[in-house]
Design a binder for these strands. Structure first.
Length: 343
DNA sequence: AAGTTCAGCAACCGCATGATC
DNA sequence: GGATCATGCGGTTGCTGAACT
């Protein structure tokens, strides 16, 4: 039934797959499936490959419904947004892009998308030079909630320094209370909680935007697990709200609430931005109207050196949105973005 | 036309995690 | 509870073809 193969380690082939090998693997899996065991599969299929190699070839290239070729703008945006929120967790990101593999997305990010954002970033910085000379008043309180009042108090007491927390996970291992805001704007300490947070949110500190994802909401359930595990591993909380729209698509909403224990303030890679820079950003926002959002100044005025790639891209991510002028709905969401702090 | 450099991408490697015994 | 094995994941490598000199 199966071709007998002497399966010695030294006999295992490496390198690019030939069409013949592809054919054998495809045919075998088509007939028998993977059998739940990749290790023995190559032997059964008559391939001089290791199980890992077969698995990779199948998952990244041969399996049905794999999408190759250009990434769409929507896909770009999803990748950027998720990268900004969760970092280089390619498998999680790939789960939001049907037909795309984690390897594909990773390669695309490293070779194209990052450069694309860098280019946009440079372009925006040029504009910044012009607007940075302007001066306006700080924003009024925008919410009646206690949380926003607290954040406003903090701003008022901060001696002209606004303190910002990057809206991506903080991977230091310091113990730090983290909080989840549920659907009712209730903030709770997830680390002391014995059950997962009730809703699925990606917390985006500086934006409040939405993405339409042409995928079933169930895809996000795995993400929810990740979300909770991250909370418990002292990473900065992020939240994704998943809801169904009328056309059955899944809507991810990113809310703007990240919490920190004030005592650990200095340890959390917070970005300190002078009030005048904030005002400058708001000025810029007025001038450009709907095209510019509150987080702009973070991109334009990231005064704290950011050496970590994630942080760098975090900022670039916003740039891409700012320059994305083809979708007014998407940009308008940014206007809702405000920073919130809980103490 | 030939040599060199660069970009894109498939594949590999090592580590972490989960399952099973 | 520990050992072993299988799988999944992310970082890295190296091959290939295109672009450049």
């Amino acid at each position: 039934m199966f071709e007998e193969v002497t399966y010695l380690e030294a006999n295992v082939k490496k390198g690019p797959w030939s069409p013949e090998e592809d054919g054998k693997l495809k045919e075998f899996i088509g007939k028998y499936g993977t059998g739940g065991n990749w290790i023995t599969l190559p032997q059964k299929a008559g391939l001089r490959r290791c199980g890992k190699s077969c698995r990779l070839r199948w998952l990244n290239y041969l399996r049905p419904n794999i999408k190759h070729g250009e990434f769409s703008d929507d896909e770009d945006m999803i990748i950027c947004n998720l990268y900004a929120s969760i970092g280089s967790r390619w498998s999680v990101i790939a789960a939001q892009l049907p037909g795309r593999t984690d390897n594909d997305i990773k390669n695309y990010w490293n070779t194209k998308l990052k450069k694309k954002l860098l280019t946009m970033h440079s372009s925006l910085q040029e504009k910044q030079t012009f607007f940075s000379s302007m001066h306006i008043q700080p924003p009024p309180p925008s919410s009646s909630s206690n949380d926003h009042l607290k954040s406003q108090q903090y701003f008022n007491n901060s001696s002209s320094i606004y303190n910002f927390t990057p809206n991506f996970m903080n991977i230091d291992n310091t113990s730090n209370p983290l909080f989840v805001q549920d659907d009712h704007n209730h903030v709770s300490d997830v680390q002391s909680s014995s059950s997962p947070p009730p809703s699925l949110h990606v917390n985006n500190l500086m934006s409040n935007n939405s993405l339409d994802v042409n995928d079933n909401c169930l895809n996000y359930l795995g993400f929810q697990d990740d979300h909770y595990s991250m909370c418990n591993s002292h990473m900065l909380m992020f939240e994704v709200t998943c809801s169904s729209s009328q056309d059955g698509n899944c809507m991810i909403s990113q809310n703007s609430h990240v919490s920190y224990n004030k005592d650990d303030h200095e340890q959390k890679q917070k970005i300190q931005i002078k009030q005048e820079d904030y005002q400058t950003a708001l000025d810029h926002e007025q001038v450009l109207g709907d095209q510019v959002q509150n987080q702009n100044f973070l991109i334009k005025n990231h005064v704290t050196p950011l050496h970590n790639d994630l942080e760098e891209v975090k900022q670039l991510n916003y740039t891409s949105y700012l320059l994305h002028d083809g979708d007014e709905n998407k940009t308008s969401h940014f206007q809702k973005g405000m920073c919130s702090y809980y103490y």
